[in-house]
Simulated scan of single mutants.
Amino acid sequence: MSQSNAFVNAADGQWAPTEPGVSRRIMAYLPEMMMVEVVFEAGAIGSLHSHPHIQASYVVEGRFEVTIDGVTQELAQGGSFIVKPDLIHGVKALEKGRLIDTFTPHRAEFL
């Protein structure tokens, strides 16, 4: 990565709907890592799924019911979670909210 590509303004990213009441935009990525902002309307669900990437997520705002490998916990602003590769996971927005998801390696299907 050259220094000219080292700084990214998330506002330049384009929002893409993913599920009802859920949209995401890519904030930055390299082949080894990707950061994504995801917004949820109250009650919106990020369906249970799995992928081969490691995922770390941070709750920027709102409250979420997070399920990872059959275990569910409520997280609010300032909370975070990590998902190991291939574990089934998903979230439900208990109120309007926003997550920052980081993946390693990057999610090529998001590009």
Rank of each mutant, 00 (worst) to 15 (best):
M1E: 11
M1A: 15
M1Y: 09
S4W: 02
S4T: 14
S4K: 10
N5I: 00
A6T: 02
A6D: 15
A6G: 09
F7A: 12
N9D: 14
N9M: 07
N9V: 07
A11M: 12
A11D: 14
D12Q: 12
G13M: 04
W15M: 05
W15E: 07
A16W: 09
A16P: 00
A16I: 07
E19N: 11
G21S: 09
G21Y: 00
G21W: 00
V22E: 02
V22Y: 03
R24I: 00
R25K: 13
I26R: 04
I26T: 10
I26F: 02
M27V: 14
M27C: 11
M27W: 07
A28W: 06
Y29S: 11
L30G: 14
P31K: 11
P31R: 10
E32W: 12
E32A: 15
E32F: 10
E32T: 14
M33P: 00
M34T: 03
M34L: 09
M34D: 00
M34W: 02
V36W: 00
E37Q: 13
V38G: 00
V39S: 10
G43V: 01
A44S: 11
A44V: 04
G46R: 00
G46H: 04
L48I: 06
L48A: 13
S50Y: 10
H51A: 10
P52C: 07
P52V: 04
P52G: 11
H53G: 08
H53C: 06
I54Y: 14
I54W: 11
A56C: 14
V60L: 13
G62L: 03
R63S: 15
F64K: 02
E65Y: 06
E65W: 01
E65S: 14
V66Q: 05
V66L: 07
T67V: 09
T67R: 03
T67F: 08
G70R: 05
G70M: 08
V71D: 15
T72Y: 10
E74W: 05
E74Y: 01
E74P: 03
A76K: 09
Q77S: 15
G79N: 06
G79S: 09
S80H: 13
S80N: 13
S80Q: 12
F81H: 10
I82F: 14
I82N: 14
V83I: 13
K84G: 13
D86I: 01
G90N: 05
V91S: 15
A93S: 05
A93G: 06
L94V: 02
E95D: 10
K96T: 10
R98Y: 04
R98V: 09
L99H: 01
L99S: 05
I100W: 04
I100F: 09
D101R: 00
F103V: 01
H106P: 00
H106C: 10
H106G: 01
R107T: 06
A108T: 13
E109S: 08
E109H: 05
E109L: 07
F110V: 02
L111W: 05
L111Y: 08
